[in-house]
């Protein structure tokens, strides 16, 4: 049974779709010298990230270990798409 399963896996692996190098090259991520319009980060002439407001003196005086830097508290959790990853809509 285990041999059959391995054979099925090998068969699937051997039957890979042919993705030619020319197509694979089109799906390559941006290199250091590529001019991508989707490179993450506020670069180029994008406005600079605003500095977080300076903490008030009274707040800095607190020595409680639970106190967190103001900038960390402002970080939002990563946004999630509204759909479940396994939802399979038809496309054609």
């Amino acid at each position: 049974m285990r041999r059959s399963f391995l054979a099925a896996l090998l068969l699937a692996a051997a039957a890979c779709v042919d993705v030619p190098d020319s197509v694979r090259a089109q799906f390559a991520g941006p290199g250091a010298t590529d001019r991508s319009n989707y490179r993450p980060g506020r670069h180029g002439s994008a406005p600079p990230v605003e500095d977080p407001p300076a903490p008030k003196a009274a707040e800095t005086a607190v020595t409680d270990a639970a106190a967190e830097p103001a900038s960390d508290a402002a970080v939002e959790p990563a946004a999630e798409p509204p759909a479940a990853a396994d939802a399979g809509g038809g496309v054609s």
Partner: peptide, 8 residues
């Protein structure tokens, strides 16, 4: 190119 948005 497509690879700037997608991978295969």
């Amino acid at each position: 190119r497509m690879g700037f948005l997608l991978s295969v």
